[in-house]
Design a protein around this nucleic acid. Structure first.
Lengths: 281, 281
DNA sequence: TCAAAAGTGTTGGACCTACACCCATGT
DNA sequence: ACATGGGTGTAGGTCCAACACTTTTGA
């Protein structure tokens, strides 16, 4: 434990998700929703002019959470949102210049409530639709478990461009222990950000099932069908209305407002029930 | 993103758990088991001669997982065990000398299978019994959620000494989001290691419920009652035998061996079923 | 013989899944 | 009138908690 030891640079990076309407079909149909991620266009080397997730170096007297909040406010104008530490990435060659160790955070926002604008070292900023396509899957049995790979195409698109990324997610089951890691096969994103993104998506999908994390993506008042749409996108499967409503019944409170001019029966607006407690608490 | 930025030191620390028999009462009774943690006595400043969890600085060309494995082998003689990244700790004053950011890992071993011995920069090494006592609890309601504190005494004891630690675990529920953090009230452990420890215990208890993580604490062959004892320690509550056996039925395979000279009906020995798959896989 | 643990069967309730059905609205 | 979504009830199955009971051993 001497002072002479090697010192890497340390950064924090944030994967900020939101869910927004894409297009409206006709006066009757509900708008379709899409999972989106916030990206910034880098104003400096390395990867100048490439899109990346927002991040910053950790300051000398700064806690990691302070750094991540400062970074978001400086670069994107976002503040006071739900953030959660995910994972620390330390491969020696993550950054082409020097050794950089990075801790990634996930953030969830209701995008309608937030005005993003490009900040320090940022040329441009935008929300990108996320589309995942499975290209290839393999599944092998081993002496002490299983070995599975999935090649995933990650398409990130805003109005003018589409960023293409391909990753291979490897899941091993060794003596019952699940080990997951990712290789980048091809990426338009800066650094290894495709890895951090796929990790965050996985975690987000996972947490939806046993927490109220999805409510961070909702506005103050929402209809139960809007909420169900969000769950369906995150879980990536259709849900039965009656069952969904029973499941989330005690997480929401009915208000006396309702939607109007919808072309169909108006729906009640609900708000999150702040008295709700998870079983563990 | 310039080179001129501040560089902290980065370490990896490992919280290694095992479960071992404490004392045998009489020829009929089963031995009681205890959760234990591996500690090393520091051979250098800071905190020279104090007990701490084993860790090391991350080398220049080294991945974090390489560093954690090297550290364990160098300092404790342990290798090839189950390890999992937990959390990254970045408070500016964690280390009295300089800024050190540390990523903690949790490891689980069957201690009967492993010979520990003190290594590099280590004066002594030992397994310590973990005992947790709740001293005080509070629970407040807030506008948008709840605020709970629990003062916990952590006693770590080997044959000759007991290390005392007191922490306050704060759990906040803000708009449904669970935020947990810990304050150290008093600690015989080096640095903020009491924090890392309580975090690891929490995670361990949690993962027992929905993974096969507990099997990493078992020997090759074990009885179902031994397995149940381990679950009971980790979940900190008694379990009904018949129900427990149904729950873990497809995670184990019966062997044709059995225990003998037990003073009661001999029990069959089981092994882990490596063909078992979690629902998600 | 008997203490201690090994091992199995049953029952009631909670919860989840799937499906069926009716209601209200704007054009 | 009708397409579209809003909203609710019910039957069947699965899973789990709780309890009761039998079996086997070594001293």
């Amino acid at each position: 434990m001497e002072e002479k030891y090697f010192r890497p640079s340390v950064t924090v990076d944030s994967i900020i998700f939101t869910i927004r309407d894409s297009q409206i079909n006709n006066y009757r149909k509900l708008p379709e929703k899409k999972l989106q991620i916030l990206l910034v266009k880098r104003g400096q080397d390395p990867f100048k002019d490439q899109w990346s997730i927002p991040g910053t170096f950790v300051g000398e007297k700064e806690r990691l959470e302070e750094a991540i909040n400062r970074s978001l406010e400086e670069k994107t104008n976002i503040k006071d949102i739900y953030l959660e530490q995910l994972y620390t990435w330390g491969d020696p060659n993550r950054d082409p210049r020097t050794r950089v160790i990075s801790t990634s955070y996930m953030g969830l926002v209701d995008s309608e409530n937030i005005k993003i604008k490009p900040g320090k070292f940022v040329e441009d900023i935008d929300w990108f639709d996320i589309q995942l396509n499975t290209l290839k899957e393999t599944n092998k049995e081993r002496k002490n478990g299983y070995y599975k790979t999935e090649d995933i195409e990650i398409l990130l698109s805003n109005k003018t461009l589409t960023l293409k990324n391909k990753v291979r997610v490897v899941k091993e089951l060794r003596n019952g222990n699940l080990i997951i890691y990712t290789q980048i096969l091809q990426s338009d994103l800066a650094f290894d950000h495709a890895k951090l993104l796929i990790y965050a998506i996985e975690r987000l999908k996972n947490k939806v099932e046993y927490t109220t994390i999805a409510f961070n993506l909702m506005p103050e008042r929402f209809t139960l069908t809007q909420l169900q749409q969000v769950y369906e996108i995150l879980l990536d499967k259709p849900l039965l209305k009656a069952n969904f409503r029973r499941k989330i019944a005690d997480m929401v409170i009915e208000t006396n407002e309702q939607e109007e001019n919808a072309g169909h029966r108006p729906s009640k607006l609900y708000k999150f029930n702040t008295n709700w407690q998870p079983h563990i608490f």
